[in-house]
Structures are given as structure tokens and as C-alpha cells.
Amino acid sequence: MKTFWKAAFAIAKKDILLELRSKEIISSVLLFAVLTLVIFHFAFTADHETMTQIAPGMLWVAFSFSGILSLNRAFIPEKEDNCMEGLLSCPVGREAIYMGKCLGSFIFMLIVEAVVIPVCAMLFNVDVFNPMIIFITLLATIGFVSVGIIFSALSVNTRAREMVLPILFLPIIVPIIICAVSSSSAILAGGTFEDIKQFLLIIVAFDVIFFTVPLMIFKYVVEE
């Protein structure tokens, strides 16, 4: 177990170091996410109540599409110089590689969310800093990244990976996005934990499934 986490953290640390060097993912993803919100800001001129209803949707449009951009590049470092084969030859489980890649992508998504949420609050004047909304976002991000990494590993060797990933990934992730948007809207409209409990349960169930199944099948994806 110690080796598992050591390897997973080493992979995540390596991914962060690579990103700090190139800034390829963060710069493009942040620009895309913020630009999306700015466009929405100019497209909609609604009263505060309407904004409260549509803000979570806009937030998750920004998260989802910028997240896909980020996931598209998750395995690019492993593709260069055939590093995936180097990783596979190490005495660590394939599960540790999957966990490491998930951790790295999760941290990238958190950085994006940490920037996009204040921008959303500023542009639309809605209280998206609500702890419940942040909790929902974190919960949904876990499922988003868990399933995204497996599809990223699948699509990295295809010629049209930029198209393949969203086509495979978006239909699977839709339930999590719907639940995250619906529960966030309910909280912004003054709802309580009881009102969103069913949505949270669905997100947690998806998180568990989307984390466990990819963890089990990752070796078949990367070994062939």
C-alpha cells in the first residue's frame, strides 16, 4: 500500500513539475474557462434571480469543456519518448499509475476551479463561494477526473484524440454534470442539504463506480 501511494504521488508530482515547465495545460485551460464565462456575461442580461438559476450551468460548461482540454493532454507526456512503456516496466501496479494520473489531473482541475469560481461570482454577482457549492464541485470533480483519465488513456493513441475523448466521455459524465448543476442551483435558490441529498447521493454513487471500474480496467487499456 505504501508503494502504491508513493508511486501515485511520484507520478502526480512529475505531472505537476512537467506542467510548471511547459504551462501548456493551465494556460490554455484557464484562458478557455474564463473566456467562456466572459462570453456568457455579455450574452445574458438577466435579473439576479435568473442569474442565480443559470450560473451553475455556466460554471459547469466552463469546467466541463476546459476539463476536457486538460484531460486531452493528460497522457501526452507518456506518449513522448514512449514513457508509458517505461512506467509499465516499473515495479508498481497499473492502479498506482491510474491513481497518479488522476491526482495530477484533479489538482489541475482544482486550480482551474479556484480561478473560475471567483470570476463567475464577480461577473454574475452570485454567491458561488457557498461552502455547499464548493463541496458539490469537489465531489463532482472526483467523478469527472476518474472517468476522464481512463478515456484519455484510451484516446491518446488515436489519431483524432481531440474528438474521440469528448465523444466517448461526455455521454458518460452527463449524470454527474446534471446533478452538480441541479444541486448547485438549489443551494443558490436557498435550498438546504435535505433538498440536494438525492443529487449528492447520485454523485457519490457515480464517483464510486467511476473510480472503481476504471481502476480495475486500466491495466487492460495500457497494456495493449
Binding site: 511520484a10 513539475l17 512537467l18 512506467l87
Partner: peptide, 26 residues
Amino acid sequence: LLSHTGYLYTSLSAEENLKFYAEMYS
């Protein structure tokens, strides 16, 4: 294992590459 590629991350330094793999091999 060594193939015609060295399995190296080109954006990392020589030492960083070896440190990363040293962690993988504990």
C-alpha cells in the same frame, strides 16, 4: 528495459528523470 527510446521526459532534467524513476523503483 531499454529500447530505441530512453523512456525519458524531455521537459525534465537528467537528474529529475532519474529521481522520478528512483521513486518508482523505491
